[in-house]
């Protein structure tokens, strides 16, 4: 994960942006900007992620407010679309065409010649690690994971500046997710930007330099600040220990004024510790000594509830 370049011009800037579908809320008066790098778009179902993507892609118009992508309004604008690529969440793919032929046709739609489109289709199917025996198979005959790889490959044909991926990890096994992560990291290293939504938060945390949290069509400021790069550098607010004497460990930590609260599951030897000041426990690498001093045998230490999970689980609030 690389830190976002805060000096770079925002490639996407939305101001007081709203989008309604009749009475249904899509996005509600959000103001934001996105800088180059891999940005995770996170939020529960119905938060406004897909609406945001469709606005960026120029497929729908804002109900109010302004949106600029690469400095231009994206609605129905080929100059913007030439620099974008989209991998939708839906599994719907054309039924009467093979993966390779589909990529060639889409590459040509992006402006490539037939020969160049074929070359790039081969290169990108290799890049997403789809084995060549599957290239000629009809898209609908491919497994879900293979289709996800083809969907990613179609995004890379025209070397877009910004790749928008809506739940691209769906249906991928761990190896597939790792492969996809590697492709996205390569893109970021090459100076491209990626906007990705996923419900697999651990993958997002490993991938993304920045996050945009959505909830009920809004961007709650405090939640976004809690997931900023600065916040993610802080110590975890809770830690789970699996040990032979969780009660004794809890007393030990309480005696030193480290705990705000805890849960003990004696049967499984689990202590879930909520820190009063996590830094006092973790800082300077002294926690090993502290745990040794406790005299309790520790089998496993794990920080719980990632910042993203906490942010998503947090109570609704206004921005």
């Amino acid at each position: 994960m690389s830190a976002p370049d805060l000096n770079a011009a925002p490639m996407v800037a939305g101001e007081n942006l709203s989008r309604f579908y009749g009475m249904i809320l899509g996005l509600n008066n959000v103001t934001f900007s996105l800088r180059p790098g891999i940005t995770g778009v996170v939020g529960p179902n119905g938060a406004g992620k897909t609406t945001l993507f469709r606005l960026l892609l120029g497929q729908i118009k804002p109900s109010s407010g302004t949106l600029h992508v690469f400095g231009e309004a994206p609605w129905n604008n080929p100059a913007v679309q030439a620099r974008l690529a989209y991998c939708p969440e839906a599994e719907t793919v054309p039924s009467a065409i093979g993966a390779f032929d589909w990529l060639v046709a889409l590459g040509m739609l992006s402006g490539l010649s037939a020969a160049e489109a074929k070359t790039r289709a081969r290169a990108n199917l290799d890049r997403v690690k789809l084995a060549s025996p599957h290239w000629k198979k009809r898209l609908t005959a491919l497994s879900k994971g293979m289709r996800q790889r083809v969907k990613l490959a179609q995004c890379l044909l025209h070397e877009p500046e910004l790749v928008i991926l809506d739940e691209p990890m769906n249906g991928l096994d761990p190896m597939g997710r790792e492969d996809m992560g590697n492709v996205l990291r390569d893109l970021a290293r090459a100076g491209r930007s990626v906007l990705i939504s996923s419900h697999i938060l651990h993958d997002l945390e490993a991938l993304c330099a920045d996050f945009l949290l959505l909830r009920w069509g809004r961007i709650p400021r405090s939640l976004n600040e809690s997931t900023s790069a600065d916040a993610r550098a802080r110590w975890p607010e809770a830690t789970s220990f699996r040990c032979d004497a969780p009660d004794a460990l809890a007393r030990f930590l309480f005696d030193r004024g480290l705990l705000r609260g805890c849960d003990v599951v004696t049967e499984t030897g689990l202590l879930h510790a909520r820190w009063k000041d996590a830094g006092a426990f973790y800082a300077n690498g002294s926690f090993h000594e502290l745990l040794l001093e406790s005299g309790v045998r520790i089998f496993e230490v794990q920080s719980t509830a990632s910042l993203l999970e906490k942010a998503i689980d947090a109570a609704p609030e206004s921005s």
Partner: peptide, 14 residues
């Protein structure tokens, strides 16, 4: 990330 943007950059900056 979600700070209010200033005037959007001109298209030729990209």
């Amino acid at each position: 990330m979600n700070a209010p943007p200033s005037t959007p950059p001109a298209p030729d900056r990209f």
